[in-house]
């Protein structure tokens, strides 16, 4: 489904991704784990076309995305939940969802389907998104991405700063999406949030994927976590 081959991305003269490669199948959850500054967020931004890689290839179902203009990448069917949510805070909940729907021409029925995942948002449609609670903002960031009707969704630390009940809601939605065949590329810092949802884990260090393992290896081989994330 999503294939990333040998991406090399830079911020100015500083190289952040070095031959970064991953692949993701339909209905699979792949988690990128690594220390701060390892290049996980940059990898997502490069896949989305927000940071133009100098070399490498991103394909979705065989269609090359790296040569597309940045705004065409989501139209290929990639939803994005950025780090820190990055909602359009002065727009209402409904307007934020509308931005997602416009991406691929989704209509009312798509919005209704997405709101079934997050019923609480239905009560807040006319509220400015910046006034929502942290958990509701995260729900909206995910709902906005789902309005794109993505075949692959990229999530950058979706559980950051959330209370346990909200983390559990997000986990349930991810499992549901996985069941629906959506490929999920998840960047996480919290290992406990990864275990229940991920199928595989790719350890990112210094801008490249060092090792990719099944999620069971996190329990079987705690040394991996000590080595790449600094926790055990």
């Amino acid at each position: 489904m999503l294939k990333v081959e040998n991406l090399n991305s830079f911020y100015g003269a500083s190289q952040v991704l070095r031959d970064f490669s991953i692949d993701l199948a339909a209905g699979e959850v792949l988690c990128l784990l690594g220390r701060n500054g390892a290049g996980k967020t940059t990898a997502l931004r490069s896949i989305m076309g927000l940071l133009r890689p100098r070399s490498g290839l991103v394909t979705l179902d065989g269609r090359e995305l790296t040569s597309l203009p940045g705004h065409e990448v989501p139209k290929a069917g990639i939803g994005y939940v950025p780090q820190g949510r990055r909602l359009f805070s002065e727009l209402t909940v409904a307007e934020n969802l509308e931005i997602g729907l416009m991406c691929r021409g989704g209509g009312e029925e798509v919005r209704e389907r997405v709101l079934q995942y997050f019923p609480r948002l239905s009560e807040r449609l006319d509220q400015a998104s910046g006034t929502l609670s942290g958990g509701e903002q995260q729900m909206l960031a995910m709902a906005r991405a789902l309005c794109v009707e993505p075949s692959v969704i990229l999530l950058d630390e979706p559980t950051e700063g959330l209370q346990p009940s909200m983390i559990s809601t997000i986990r349930d939605v991810l499992l549901q999406l996985r069941g629906d065949g959506v490929g999920i590329l998840l960047v996480e810092q919290r290992v406990d949030a990864v275990r229940p949802v991920a199928d595989r884990v790719a350890f990112v260090e210094n801008g490249c994927v060092r090792e990719t393992v099944g999620v069971a290896a996190l329990t079987e081989n705690p040394e991996l976590l000590r080595k790449y994330v600094g926790v055990g």
Binding site: L50, G70, H71, Y80, R86, F88, R144
Partner: peptide, 12 residues
């Protein structure tokens, strides 16, 4: 509000 995020949702 946010050009980068707008682009990530297909806005040219």
């Amino acid at each position: 509000f946010d050009g980068d995020t707008a682009q990530a949702f297909g806005i040219p």
